[in-house]
């Protein structure tokens, strides 16, 4: 019980801390915002249940007024912007990502976690994000989708990175990748 609370809290803190450290790059100087990568890792490392709770806890803290989103953003205002759909999609992203890593046992973990991150962290997240944007901007779903296509390549790279990180973590500390153990 204490272990679960600690893990859920620490990964929520990890997502927050990712917004506070200097921005990371992809290696050719291209900057990436690492917080959504943190959401993917919640799913791939902690699994569906703990991962989702961790992301929900993070969003709760943002909602009650803490500036935890990158750039010091926070408060109820961020849930009233056109991109609020993406935020609401984060817990579902972690849920789906976690479920896939838990259920799909064959093959390399890097591939499984990478595919899980694409399906959860991109397909599911963008579904919510595009829907939210379409309502807020009074545009059709297709129009809203066009607005966000520019971000997909970057997020695809993040999903690949999430896969590699999860596999590397499993190699270093197998017991810590809970998505591969008991529920």
């Amino acid at each position: 019980m204490e272990k679960n609370v600690a893990l859920i809290a620490l990964f929520a803190a990890l997502i927050a801390a990712l917004g506070l450290i200097p921005k990371l790059t992809l290696g050719f100087g291209v900057p990436i915002t690492a917080q959504t990568l943190g959401v993917m890792l919640c799913g791939t490392v902690l699994g569906s249940k703990r991962g989702t709770l961790s992301v929900l806890l993070f969003l709760l803290l943002v909602a009650i007024g803490l500036p935890l989103l990158s750039g010091g953003r926070g408060g109820l205002g961020v849930f009233a912007t056109p991109s609020a759909g993406f935020l609401l999609g984060w817990p579902f992203a972690a849920l789906v990502t976690g479920l896939i890593v838990e259920k799909w046992r064959g093959g390399s973990l890097a591939v499984v976690a990478g595919v899980a991150s694409v399906i959860g962290g991109i397909v599911v997240m963008y579904a919510f994000g595009v829907a939210g944007m379409s309502v807020a901007l009074d545009k059709s779903l297709v129009e809203a989708a066009v607005l966000v296509t520019a971000f997909i390549p970057g997020d695809l790279i993040k999903a690949v990175i999430a896969g590699m990180l999860t596999a590397a973590l499993f190699k270093a500390r197998p017991a810590s990748v809970l998505s591969r153990y008991a529920a």
Partner: peptide
Amino acid sequence: KPTWQILLPFTVLALDDADHVAEAL
């Protein structure tokens, strides 16, 4: 500037902190 690879030791630190916190709790 640091690349994504720094996330491996960073995640390990979060996992270690979780162990210590669980112990303290």
